[in-house]
Nucleic acid binder design. Structure first.
Lengths: 122, 122
DNA sequence: AATATTATTCTACATTTGTAGAGTAATAAA
DNA sequence: TTTATTACTCTACAAATGTAGAATAATATT
């Protein structure tokens, strides 16, 4: 099952905090902070979906992510690549490189990374 | 406004066909083809959202996309980069390069593309 | 102890989404 | 022209989502 938009936003906060009680999470929200009950609902749903767990800590709970941000992100990107490039990762990569506004310096940087990846693969 | 999952899937078909009447679209669906009315509903909603338009062609309509696949895709990727990498495209790029299973050949290929991009920027 | 504060759960409700039947108009076939 | 077929629109409805008030339990204040 997937996280909805609102859930994903909250997940980002959790990833950032590593572990957090509801209070912290709400504080982390910008301007029109949602009601505590809203967050409570989201956390509960995220638990049901298996993305979050908590540990009772005194009177409150310390929530923490069950899935790594990296893994979640990878899944997202792969989903995109799958539907838009028919799973051809390389095609995506070249598209990305050409369509994104990376500066020359960033491109150089990227090239360096790719080079070291190539070496690793060897 | 955004396309929902089902709408996006239909959009992919439209992008592939360039222009198509409902019949073609339904045919393009795999195994458990949705009811015609389902597709009709989706097309209507997509119109409301401004992603699709049609031209009456005899007794049926020829539907066509109003947004380019490329643009739509870019927006998706940028959304991801924004929420996961705080808008740091380069960081995303390096992450992508390291986490994706590109073969050595694909990496070489990508490197070539990046090189030509670098030259373009120069 | 009586009361206020917190942290959660329960319930609720408006939207959005996925799916499709019923109805209708236009056209084609008998 | 009577009937069947097509191509839609309208209406419907269950599930998922976004949001939050009311109720409750546990704890902290007065």
């Amino acid at each position: 099952m997937q996280l909805s938009k609102a859930e994903e936003q909250l997940m980002q906060l959790l990833w950032k905090h590593k572990r957090a009680i509801m209070k912290d999470l709400i504080e982390a929200y910008p301007k029109p902070k949602p009601a505590t009950t809203t967050i409570a609902t989201l956390l509960k749903r995220m638990q049901d979906k298996g993305f979050v767990e908590y540990k009772q800590e005194g009177r409150s709970r310390e929530y923490f992510p069950l899935v790594k941000k990296k893994d979640y992100f990878s899944k997202q990107v792969n989903g995109l690549i799958k539907s838009f490039f028919n799973n051809d990762t390389a095609q995506f990569a070249s598209f990305f490189t050409q369509e994104t506004n990376l500066t020359k310096a960033q491109l150089e940087e990227l090239k360096k990374i790719i080079d070291s990846e190539i070496k690793k693969k060897k």
